[in-house]
């Protein structure tokens, strides 16, 4: 256990989040500068396959805590297992993906190890033996250079900010089995999967809808609906239409807060300052005005397309391509065009 760079592999029920592999890639780049290899940490129950995958993405060593006590993620056991290993082996850097679990473990481990966390980092550099991280603050309105004077320097990495390394089938390394530690304070009672689709934060393409989704006078809602019900019904047809475009593109569906607040679509789809922060290769905003809080969640997308009736809508200021028009006419035409051109 001599590597200075550790990477925590975040997973849910054995399914790794892609940001974990991106973190191994970022760890490799750090190891080239700081020396040594990369040690990946895989915690769970029946997760030996994840250890194998970690090698294929570039880990040189895996510390595997495979124990029924770790079958569900609990902050206390996962943190204690990490903290115990780190206090025995003194890594210089621990990288984690910025996920709900990654943030939690990072913060708690920093308490145990009397160190600090550089959160949601988008770029990493090395000065001497110190990691210098760049992270967005004020919802991306500013950037901060930040460092941690204690060791280990605990860093969480924003998903899609670092490239996912090439997977090398059959690559292996040193597998070391380690023990679980800590007493859980919470009990997991149950779990309900979110209704299908691509996860927003991992998506490379997002098709997003705003209040404009309900503005389709051509639709006649079923009899007996009051005005509010009719509006929601119309918006749901609008989102169905966006879903069809999304499925042709293999995209996830996003939404503005106004669409969520109006009851058009669940909160899990909200993009923005009080929703998810996303950075896909392509973001198609339909019937979204482009309020500052919405831009905060998507402005770093590589290519932004805006479809909006109002030529003055602020969304056009961040868009690479714009269409001034009715989304209810443009989007179905776009779906057909892609079907044809992409041979689907």
């Amino acid at each position: 256990m001599s590597n200075k760079i550790w990477v925590y592999v975040d997973h849910f029920k054995g399914e790794a989040l892609p940001a974990s592999w991106e973190a191994i890639g970022a760890g490799k780049t750090l190891a080239e500068k700081l020396g040594g290899g990369v040690t990946a940490l895989v915690f769970g129950s029946g997760v030996e396959d994840l250890a194998k995958t970690a090698f294929e993405y570039g880990a040189d060593e895996v510390l595997l805590a495979d124990d029924p006590a770790l079958s569900d993620y609990r902050p206390e056991t996962y943190t204690s297992t990490l903290s115990k290993l780190a206090s025995e082996s003194n890594p210089d850097v621990i990288l984690l993906p910025t996920t709900t679990r990654g943030r939690e473990i990072a913060g708690m481990a920093a308490v145990d190890l009397e160190s600090g966390v550089l959160v949601d980092v988008i770029a990493l550099d090395v000065e001497g033996d110190q990691v210098v991280a760049t992270r967005p603050i004020y919802a991306g309105k500013l950037l901060q250079k930040t460092l941690c004077a204690a060791k280990p320097q605990i860093v969480t990495l924003r998903g899609r900010a670092f490239p996912k390394p090439e997977r090398q089938e059959g690559r292996t390394g040193t597998l070391t089995k380690v023990a679980a530690a800590g007493e859980p304070l919470v009990t997991v009672e149950g779990y309900q999967e979110s209704e299908g689709g691509v996860s927003l934060t991992d998506a490379s393409i997002i098709v997003s809808g705003g209040r404009g989704t309900s503005n389709n006078p051509a639709l006649t809602p079923p009899d007996g609906m009051d005005e509010k019900e009719a509006e929601i019904w119309k918006a749901q047809q609008g989102f169905k239409m966006l879903g069809e475009l999304a499925s042709v593109l293999g995209a996830a569906v996003g939404a503005s807060r106004a669409a969520v607040d109006a009851g058009y679509i669940p909160y899990a789809h909200q993009v923005g300052q009080t929703g998810k922060v996303v950075s896909p290769d392509l973001y198609i905003a339909c019937g979204i005005s482009g309020a500052i809080q919405h831009l905060a969640g998507m402005r770093t997308s590589k290519v932004i397309v805006a479809i909006n009736k109002d030529p003055e809508a602020p969304i056009f200021k961040v868009a690479r391509y714009g269409v001034v028009g009715d989304m209810h006419q443009i989007v179905p035409a776009l779906t057909e065009a892609f079907k044809k051109k992409l041979g689907k």
Binding site: E114, S115, G116, V117, L118, P136, I137, G140, K141, L142, L143, Q144, K145, T146, L147, C148, A149, A150, R299, I304, A306, F316, K317, V318, A319, R320, Y321, G322, V323, V324, G325, D326, Q329, I330, P332, A333, L334, E336, A337
Partner: peptide, 30 residues
């Protein structure tokens, strides 16, 4: 405190100019 932030910066300006796609019909625009 062990975490410090010696520098805070404005993010690099993104040079995007929006190219508006026009056409006679939704199909042509699409």
């Amino acid at each position: 405190s062990v975490v410090s932030w010696p520098e805070i910066m404005n993010p690099p300006k993104r040079e995007v100019t929006c190219e508006f796609i026009e056409g006679d019909s939704p199909e042509e625009i699409a």
